[in-house]
């Protein structure tokens, strides 16, 4: 309870009224914020007819899954788009948890030559807008390495991100150096120290990182869109975009597609809320 607000100790009813009014405002704003998502889900149960326009009904008038079927029938690979997103997401998470974790520990606790320089280079890289690297990266992957339409191309650029290394380094710097020194005296090498001491202590930050990495990978559109020209290698976001441009007049199926692309994240969010919310603040501390 913050001292910003008066406690109204002598008139508790006043506090109740005030908090009630505030929560009304907050709920109204939350409804406005959540409305597009509600509208998306409700409309996705409409019939897959070529509508003259959108349905403005706020409550489901029909309850049919035909629009979902319509979306999956659009391309023989619609279901595979989901699988592709899942595979790309999981491999990206694995790469980041293992290698960003190791690098984060090295930057936090191991003394090696050139550490400061390399770390500042990583920091600078985080400020480069993606537009700068996108064109040369595209030319490298597609024109020189001929890797378009491969999982390698989808995963490689984000296999270990500078941001995640930074995140791990920030957290692991806060761990006491004494335990590492003790383990060294006990005869542990750095890999043993990392696996047996640092990793268990960093479980939370690694979990937060894994979740945010998976979400970013799942929602990433730009890069998968550039390196996949074949239907069967596209991710769900690219597939949804294709569907949108191919079926401009199908309202309910488009909403069904949007729901399909967002639903896995909603489920993940509701089951792991704590980690999601923690992730938001972890990234912002020390900016």
């Amino acid at each position: 309870m913050s001292g910003l607000y008066s406690q109204h100790l002598n008139r508790p009813w006043l506090r109740t009224v005030r908090n009630g009014l505030i929560s009304l405002v907050l709920i109204a704003l939350a409804v406005a914020t959540l409305f597009p998502i509600y509208y998306m889900i409700v409309s996705s149960f409409g019939a897959p007819v070529e509508a003259g326009g959108a349905s403005y009904s706020l409550f489901p008038t029909t309850l049919t899954l035909d629009s979902y079927k319509f979306f999956f029938d659009f391309s023989p690979y619609s279901a595979r788009w989901l699988l592709n997103s899942l595979v790309v997401g999981l491999v990206t998470v694995l790469g980041n948890v293992v290698f960003a974790g190791l690098a984060g520990y090295a930057f936090a606790k191991i003394r090696f030559k050139g550490k400061r320089f390399l770390f500042y280079a990583l920091l600078c890289a985080m400020m480069i807008p993606y537009q700068v690297t996108q064109v040369p990266l595209y030319m490298l992957m597609v024109n020189q390495l001929h890797l378009s339409n491969t999982y390698a191309a989808l995963v490689a650029p984000t296999f270990v991100t500078a941001y995640n290394v930074f995140l791990c380094k920030q957290f692991m710097s806060s761990l006491p150096t004494e335990i590492i020194e003790c383990a060294k005296i006990e005869g542990c090498n750095q890999l043993q120290i990392y696996l047996k001491i640092i990793m268990p202590l960093s479980k939370t930050v690694l979990a937060v990182m894994a979740i945010l990495t998976f979400m970013n990978s799942w929602n990433n559109f730009f890069w998968p869109f550039l390196v996949t020209s074949k239907d069967y290698m596209q991710t769900i976001q690219v597939g949804l975009k294709n569907f949108k441009f191919a079926n401009t007049t199908y309202f309910a199926p488009m909403m069904a597609g949007a729901t399909i692309s967002a639903l896995p994240m909603f489920i993940l969010f509701f089951s792991l809320q704590k980690y999601f919310l923690e992730g938001v603040t972890i990234g912002a501390v020390k900016g």
Binding site: L29, A30, T33, L34, P36, I37, Y39, M40, M215, W218, N219, F221, Q237, L240, K241, K244, M254, M255, G257, A258, T259, S261, A262, M265, F266, L268, F269, Q273, F276, L277, V280
Partner: peptide
């Protein structure tokens, strides 16, 4: 959680809506 939920959906999905 309520206010954060839209941030979980992809930009493509929100744009479509």
């Amino acid at each position: 959680s309520l206010y954060y939920l839209p941030a979980v959906a992809s930009g493509v999905a929100l744009s479509v809506v």
